[in-house]
C-alpha cells in the first residue's frame, strides 16, 4: 500500500499556492510531484520561503487555502508516495 506523507510548513506566515497573483498554481491536486519540486510559498516578514516536496508521489490534497495564515508546523498538504 502507498505511504502517505504529510507536508508541513516549518515557519508561520501567509500561505500562497501561486508564485505571483497573476500566475498559475505551482501544483494542482492530483498532480505528480518529484522531490525538490516547489509546492507552495510562505511569506514571513517580507521574505518568501518555498515549501518543497520531500518525496516523489502524487499531491493528493491541500489542507489550506491560498492566503491562509499558517502556524509553524502546520500541515499543509499530503503526498501519496509512489
Amino acid at each position: 500500500m502507498a505511504e502517505q506523507k504529510t507536508v508541513l510548513s516549518p515557519i508561520p506566515g501567509v500561505f500562497y499556492r501561486k508564485p505571483a497573483p497573476d500566475k498559475d498554481v505551482y501544483v494542482k491536486e492530483g498532480n505528480t510531484v518529484k522531490t525538490g519540486d516547489v509546492l507552495a510559498m510562505v511569506e514571513v516578514m517580507k521574505n518568501f520561503y518555498e515549501i518543497k516536496a520531500e518525496t516523489d508521489g502524487v499531491l493528493a490534497q491541500f489542507f489550506v487555502e491560498d492566503e491562509d495564515l499558517l502556524d509553524a508546523g502546520q500541515e499543509i498538504a499530503v503526498i501519496i508516495e509512489q
Binding site: I11, P12, G13, V14, E43, V44, M45, K46
Partner: peptide, 10 residues
Amino acid sequence: GSAVTPFYDP
C-alpha cells in the same frame, strides 16, 4: 511578552 508576528517587517 510581545509577539513578533510573521506578517510585518523584522
